[in-house]
Amino acid sequence: MRDLEPDIIKSSGEKVKFSFSKLRRSLLKSGANESIVSSIIDEIRDELYQGISTKELYNRAFALLKDHKGAYASRYRLKKAIYELGPSGFPFEKFVAEILNFAGYEVELNKVLQGECVTHEVDIIAKKGGTGHLIECKFHSEEGRNCDVKIPLYINSRFNDIHSFEKKENQGWLVTNTRFTLDALTYGECVGLKLLSWDYPEEESLKLLIDNSGAYPITTSTLLSDSEKQFLLEKGIILGRNLLERSYLLDHQGVSENRKKRILSELSILCDISVNDGE
Rank of each mutant, 00 (worst) to 15 (best):
E136N: 11
E136C: 08
C137T: 09
C137G: 00
H140I: 01
H140K: 09
S141N: 10
E142L: 13
G144N: 08
N146S: 11
N146L: 08
N146R: 10
D148H: 02
D148A: 04
V149K: 04
V149F: 02
K150A: 12
I151T: 12
L153A: 12
Y154H: 15
N156V: 07
S157Y: 07
R158M: 14
R158K: 15
F159N: 11
N160P: 02
D161Y: 05
K167N: 09
K167S: 01
K168A: 02
G172V: 10
W173Q: 12
L174I: 05
L174K: 04
V175D: 04
T176G: 08
T176F: 01
N177E: 07
T178H: 00
R179I: 09
R179F: 07
F180M: 13
F180S: 13
T181L: 01
L182K: 14
L182Y: 04
L182I: 11
D183A: 15
A184N: 02
Y187R: 00
Y187G: 03
C190K: 15
G192L: 06
L193P: 08
L193F: 01
K194R: 15
K194M: 12
S197H: 04
W198D: 12
D199S: 14
Y200S: 12
Y200A: 10
P201S: 05
P201Y: 04
E202V: 11
E204S: 14
E204V: 08
E204D: 15
L206D: 03
L206R: 06
L208W: 07
L208D: 14
I210Q: 05
I210L: 05
D211W: 04
D211H: 11
D211M: 11
S213Q: 02
S213V: 02
G214H: 09
G214E: 06
A215R: 02
A215G: 06
Y216D: 00
P217I: 10
T219N: 06
T220K: 05
S221N: 01
L223H: 00
L223V: 01
S225F: 09
E228R: 08
K229H: 00
K229V: 13
K229S: 08
L233W: 03
E234L: 13
E234Q: 15
E234I: 09
K235I: 00
K235T: 01
K235F: 07
G236Q: 06
I237H: 05
I238S: 02
G240P: 07
R241Q: 13
R241M: 13
R241I: 14
N242Y: 07
L243E: 09
L244H: 02
E245G: 00
E245L: 14
R246E: 14
Y248S: 13
Y248G: 10
D251M: 10
D251R: 11
H252Y: 13
G254T: 06
G254L: 08
S256L: 07
E257P: 00
N258F: 04
N258S: 12
R259G: 04
K260D: 03
K260T: 05
I263Y: 00
L264F: 03
S268C: 13
S268K: 03
L270H: 07
L270G: 03
I273N: 07
V275T: 09
V275Y: 02
D277P: 01
D277F: 13
